[in-house]
Structure formats: structure tokens, C-alpha cells
């Protein structure tokens, strides 16, 4: 895809990001951070694409490290966010347990 098309996608994503994030409840800023952090772990897709057809073993080893790091970010991010979000319950949801 040419540079201008990619730039277009980038600029539009900036506006979508700004709109969506500015509506996030301040109560959930920590899960927002860990959740968005998990989303940036999608760089895993990039690391796999680069590693797919490497000839050199030395480079491949580095690529495996990149894959591992990205997976830590992706998996850890989503799991820790879920762990936090399941703790947020409203008064009504809590009453049956009391």
C-alpha cells in the first residue's frame, strides 16, 4: 500500500482514538492503560511477518526474541485487564453476596 494511503489511515485513526478515549470513564483509567497496552501488543503480527521468511539464523533468533516480547505484552495485557475489570461491580451486583 502506498505511503499516502497509510498516512490517511493514520490521520483518521488519530481522530477515532481521540473520540473514543475521551469518553472513557475516569474510574477505569488503569484498565484503559493496561487494555490499550495489550492492544499495542498486536505488534506481534508484525514480528511474525518479519520472521516468516528469514534466511539468516542470527536474525531469526532476534526475531524470536521480538515475538516473545510482543506475546508477553499481548497476553499479559489482556489477562491483567480482565482481572481488574472483574473486580468492578456495582452496588446491585454485590448485594446478593452480602
Amino acid at each position: 500500500m502506498d505511503g499516502i494511503a497509510l498516512l490517511t489511515i493514520f490521520v483518521l485513526a488519530v481522530f477515532v482514538g481521540y473520540e473514543v478515549i475521551s469518553k472513557v470513564s475516569t474510574t477505569l483509567h488503569t484498565p484503559l492503560m493496561s487494555g490499550s497496552n495489550a492492544i499495542s501488543g498486536i505488534v506481534l503480527v508484525g514480528t511474525i511477518a518479519v520472521a516468516a521468511h528469514t534466511e539468516s539464523t542470527a536474525l531469526f533468533v532476534l526475531e524470536l526474541i521480538a515475538i516473545m516480547l510482543a506475546t508477553i505484552n499481548l497476553v499479559g495485557g489482556f489477562v491483567v485487564t480482565d482481572r481488574m475489570l472483574q473486580m468492578f461491580r456495582s452496588r446491585k451486583e454485590k448485594e446478593p453476596r452480602a
Partner: peptide, 18 residues
């Protein structure tokens, strides 16, 4: 952008905005 991967651009930008 380097890899011409639209998903990484969108995802990265969302996180950047956040």
C-alpha cells in the same frame, strides 16, 4: 507504516491517542 500493515497503524494510533 514500515511493514505496510494497516492493523498495526490503527492499533498503535489508538494506544498513542490514549
Amino acid at each position: 507504516y514500515v511493514l505496510s500493515n494497516t492493523l498495526l497503524i490503527v492499533a498503535g494510533t489508538l494506544v498513542g491517542a490514549s
